[in-house]
Design a binder for these strands. Structure first.
Lengths: 251, 251
DNA sequence: GACTGTGAATGCCTTCACAGCA
DNA sequence: TGCTGTGAAGGCATTCACAGTC
């Protein structure tokens, strides 16, 4: 979708699966197959009409609707989210900013007055909000989520470093900013390991250094490693830090 | 790892693959197989020693090292990141906060004085920083990334809404906060569609509503849908908003 | 001639199921 | 007896390759 939008902004009229796949970094066959599950939106010998495809995929992704959201917890992060331009351009409308601090009430943030938590239920109901963003401290998050849900919210984006427990039917996505750093650090470590291995000549143990446990047999790439294990190990090693984002943990 | 840490904090001495798998929301066989790629860290008949496993996995993930990071762009988001407690507890040390605004220089944010962009190279080199966080406006991001890389940074966490183009060997992860909301909205839409379908009786088209294109055949679940297509389509429909995060796009 | 749409082939990840060990 | 470690089976996503269409 992001690749398509870029093409649309450059007023490119049509695009082949090959071109679009290259722009998005995927295989063209996969792209065609995926599109085929949504419908037959291309023209043989020509390609896909960019605008038409943008529309169809937007519709399928739910981007043609306007989603009102509330942001609860207007600290640094909440304010950053309120000011974040990406929301409005993707069909999200910040219906209200809510904070528990009475001193915040009425203060303008991102051109919008902060409202007090007391108003939470009223705001949700009047605006038909079904998506809430929690940017409160960890301690408040669970309680806020319960109030949001009781008022009718069914999807929550949680920035607080807590696992929320919610009833069935409510979706939660947890954003843990440090996990992104951890993924970078993981690859950074591998880079260092590979350099060391390369410098030491291509003889010994690859990369990461074996477990120093005296009893436990060394992990990967010993003589006893099976074909499957070796393949999996090399799989871990291949590629950059793209993809591979850990799933949300269950409540 | 998150599940393990929780056990460790509760001083649970050992855990079976079955228990840990349940806590993490995965299959126990998968968990055992994954661990087997790292080494044989368990005891048959007993389970895994929690502390030992924490240590081994931490080491494998690169969490035993201390990673100095710099945050460039101290607006709302940069300040939020600087104040984010999760970094320190996961082995990341904020070595410096950097901003291009001379008025910011010297101001304390998260108990640390903001430094001016002029100092960027010096800071990176003196602290041996290899991971940089970009929280600048979109316009500045590419240039900042180039200076970071020239100074020795090889991993970048990019919050700016731009695709960075970087040389080989440099890893970039882009965090797009609106994508998380889009994923929630996608599932939210499906919920609405399923309710509507359920209300309309279980007869007609499922969920999302068919393409309104007059010529193109309707997408999923028509009489002509192959077994493969049907399986894939239902795959899209199953489960909550967990996992399935889009990969980083290529430069 | 060019490019889509898709059956068939491929390969990988996941899961099963059980031998092996404490 | 209980649980790990792992070969083998299974299932699913990806990719190939080409018939079909413009």
């Amino acid at each position: 979708m992001r690749a398509l939008t870029a093409l649309s902004e450059r007023s490119v009229p049509t695009v082949s699966s090959e071109e679009l796949a290259a722009a998005a970094g995927v295989n063209s066959a996969k792209l065609r197959k995926d599109f085929s599950y949504l419908g037959s939106y291309g023209t043989r010998g020509v390609g896909y009409d960019v605008e038409y495809l943008v529309y169809q995929i937007s519709r399928e992704l739910g981007l043609t609707q306007d989603w009102p959201v509330v942001i609860v917890g207007i600290g640094n992060l909440g304010a950053a989210l309120a000011n974040y331009g990406g929301f409005a351009s993707r069909g999200f409308r910040v219906a209200a900013l809510i904070d528990a601090d009475p001193a915040m009430a009425g203060k303008p943030v991102a051109g919008m007055p902060v409202q007090h938590t007391d108003e939470l239920e009223k705001i949700i109901e009047e605006n038909g909000v079904s998506i809430g963003v929690i940017a409160t401290p960890a301690g408040a998050a669970q309680q806020v989520s319960e109030r949001l849900i009781a008022a009718g919210v069914t999807s929550i984006l949680n920035f607080a470093p807590t696992v929320l427990s919610v009833p069935d039917g409510v979706d939660v996505r947890k954003v843990d900013l440090s996990i992104e750093l951890q993924i970078l650090a993981f690859h950074e470590q591998r880079k260092a390991g590979e350099e060391a291995a390369a410098a030491a000549g291509s003889a010994g143990e690859p990369g990461t250094g074996a477990a120093e446990s005296p009893a436990a047999p060394a992990a990967s790439a010993t003589a006893t490693a099976t074909a499957t294990a070796a393949a999996a190990a090399s799989g871990v090693r291949k590629g950059g830090p793209e993809g591979d984002v850990p799933a949300v943990m269950p409540a």
